[in-house]
């Protein structure tokens, strides 16, 4: 049972990291156009010279 003392904090920490990343993505507007982003990866416009 002692292992719980390590596992629970570790799992909580990892969960919090995931939550933090999600907030960051939300703020960066990565969920603003899910449908468009799904299509965008299919086009070849910037394959050779990326936009930025």
């Amino acid at each position: 049972m002692d292992v719980l003392g390590i596992l629970i904090p570790v799992s909580l920490f990892l969960g919090l990291v995931g939550l933090g990343i999600f907030f960051w993505m939300l703020k960066r507007g990565q969920f603003d156009d899910p449908e468009g982003d799904a299509h965008r990866i299919l086009r070849e416009d910037y394959d050779d010279h990326p936009k930025s």
């Binding site: 629970i8 799992s11 909580l12 969960g15 939550l19 999600f22 907030f23 939300l26 703020k27 969920f31």
Partner: peptide, 20 residues
């Protein structure tokens, strides 16, 4: 975004509490 934020927190908390 505000609602989405709360939804994410609720999901995080729900999963962890459920685990326990």
């Amino acid at each position: 975004r505000d609602l989405m934020m709360r939804l994410a927190v609720a999901f995080f908390a729900m999963m962890n509490v459920m685990l326990l």
